[in-house]
Nucleic acid binder design. Sequence first.
DNA 1: GTAATCTTGATTCAATCAGTGGTCAATCTA
DNA 2: TAGATTGACCACTGATTGAATCAAGATTAC
Lengths: 154, 154
Amino acid sequence: MRLSLRGEYALRAMLALGQRYGSEVVRIRDVAAEQRIPKRFLEQILNDLKDARVVESRRGVQGGYRLARAPELISLAEVIRHIDGPLAPVSCVSERFYEPCSCPDESRCGLRSIMREVRDAISKQLEGVTVADLCARSASLQVGKEGPSMDFAI
Amino acid sequence: MRLSLRGEYALRAMLALGQRYGSEVVRIRDVAAEQRIPKRFLEQILNDLKDARVVESRRGVQGGYRLARAPELISLAEVIRHIDGPLAPVSCVSERFYEPCSCPDESRCGLRSIMREVRDAISKQLEGVTVADLCARSASLQVGKEGPSMDFAI
DNA sequence: GTAATCTTGATTCAATCAGTGGTCAATCTA
DNA sequence: TAGATTGACCACTGATTGAATCAAGATTAC
């Protein structure tokens, strides 16, 4: 049930780009430094996200990356699907990456029916959260850094 | 977000053993044939489940495996954790397999806070479902095989 | 004792993951 | 406008993990 490191880095990069949405492009090296991601590895990941039309790039001096759409229009589910593949725990219940499994009768498989519910739960969470939400959540956590009103966190 | 094949086989084996709970031990080869799992691979998996005290075995002629407890007392979450490790998508939100991640400040990480919700959703699903539930679900799906009352499934 | 079954460890094979070295395009500078 | 510099781009490698197999050994029933 794991998200790959690659997928985690992708999401952290989206956060970094989301926080700077509206300004100019951001260099890979800056994202890498801020999020403590290996720079060369991040290059690949952002490149993949470009193929997915989630980010866009500019080359050369003053080049860099930025979101291709408003942060409200990018769900975490979309990012993960492009980087890591299906959200579903087993691919016989995946909607976009369906593949048959080896069980005797898929249509009457009790496990499959349960796994479909797990997929729905995961999907509901990740489909409903956008990069904008991620940025907002991050910002609200940062507030506690200076402000004293973090009773809720104790 | 995937369950490994190993984990899937483990759950299918639990289903097979659950359906025969109460009777004598079941041979690996029978479970393998019924569930279409490579026999040699299944040997490994059942052996791991024995270490987890989820199944118990008997050697020699007329040997085999059976559940070590009533099916109502074995959750799918327990099986998966023993075979595949953490349910959590990233290990910095795992309760039993916690490991720090590389992000700048874990306690104020927006992504982490979202991933914790995903873990809770997954955990809620899998913790709440037992091997008994799995068998019951499977049985109710099998009913439709002969009976005509499967309107709900259309 | 012999056949059937689990037990254990090593081993193969392939796929995926994480990371790296060099190439190409845009901008800046002289 | 030539050349240097910067930063994205592409192809590849090395290591790890996952799935599966092989080959003995141990235990029990008959």
